[in-house]
Computed example of a mutant assay.
Amino acid sequence: MRDFAYVARDRVSRKHMCHVFRCDTPARTIANTLRDICKKIMIERSLQQNLNKPLDTGSGGGGGGSRLTRPTNLPTENRRTHRHPQIITTAQSFPTPMEEPKKVMRVQYVGVLQVERPSGMEVINTAIQRVVEANPPPWRNVSVAVAPSTVTITNADDGKQIAECRVRFLSFLGIGSDVKHCAFIMHTAQDQFIAHVFFCEPSTGALCKTIEAACKLRYQKCLDAHPGVGRGGRGAGTPRTISATLRSVLGTITGRKARSAES
């Protein structure tokens, strides 16, 4: 099939128009590419809304960071250049990297525990139970800063960093039997699996949803970096594993929210 069409709203008339094309290449390829671009935009928009949305935890609240705009081109005004046959120098400095957007939440850190497996709700519930029994309240007040690439846990009292977790190594995330407890599992460089356990009132749903958004964006970036992987090409096994893990993580959160609403 070489016929392709999409519907978009016209900027002038504000009416929805259907644009139809006859393609020299298979239309499915163009449709899939457009779908992936739209999906990426929606995921980034969802993450931005999650990071900028105010949070009400019921026990001290939290704060969020504003999204900073990264420069898309080099400034050209008032730039002094010195040309040499093989050297070109610029007096104006190169733009400095911008800080990642992040959302900071105030929760309580129950503790950490090494687990045997990288995923599974039974692993999460067992880890939460064992950590809570080993570390009775009161628990430490911490700030959890969630960015697209990292989840940073910092002691709220003295500002010391407890852990910095790379989102790419997060293998599972889940809410416990009590919705006030949640945990996520990290795969360490020593090939071990570590579960970080948190407590938040009235529930840990907001924390999990924010980490979920970061996982979605990270996964989409992996697909963008390897466009041929995961669609039957060479090395497709790894993205399918990542995709299955992400689906299990997001399904766990969705299922837990549904059961909580029913009760």
Rank of each mutant, 00 (worst) to 15 (best):
R2H: 14
V7L: 12
R9N: 09
R9K: 12
R11L: 08
V12G: 11
R14I: 13
R14A: 15
M17E: 11
R22V: 08
T25R: 10
T25S: 07
P26W: 03
A27L: 00
R28A: 10
T29E: 07
N32G: 00
T33S: 04
L34V: 04
D36Q: 12
K39Y: 02
K40E: 10
M42T: 13
E44A: 13
S46T: 07
Q49S: 13
K53H: 08
L55W: 07
D56V: 10
G58P: 02
G61T: 03
G63L: 03
G64S: 05
S66D: 09
L68F: 12
R70T: 14
T76E: 14
E77M: 13
N78M: 07
R79S: 11
H82V: 04
R83H: 09
Q86V: 14
Q86M: 13
I87K: 04
I88V: 09
T89G: 03
Q92K: 13
Q92R: 15
E99P: 07
E100S: 13
K103T: 09
R106M: 03
V112F: 06
L113M: 12
Q114H: 11
E116Q: 15
E116H: 15
T126G: 08
T126C: 06
A127V: 00
Q129R: 03
V132L: 00
N135S: 08
P136M: 05
P136W: 03
P138C: 03
W139E: 01
W139R: 00
R140F: 03
I153Y: 01
I153R: 00
D157Y: 02
C165L: 12
R166Y: 02
R166K: 15
V167G: 07
R168K: 11
F169K: 13
L170N: 06
L170K: 02
S171V: 04
F172G: 06
L173Y: 03
S177N: 10
I185H: 00
D191F: 00
A195W: 04
L207Q: 01
I211A: 04
E212K: 05
A214E: 08
L217R: 01
L223I: 04
H226Q: 14
H226I: 02
P227I: 13
V229C: 12
G230C: 05
G232F: 07
G232Q: 04
R234C: 10
A236T: 08
G237C: 05
T238E: 07
A244S: 06
A244N: 08
T245R: 11
L246T: 06
S248Y: 06
S248A: 09
G255S: 14
K257L: 15
A261I: 10
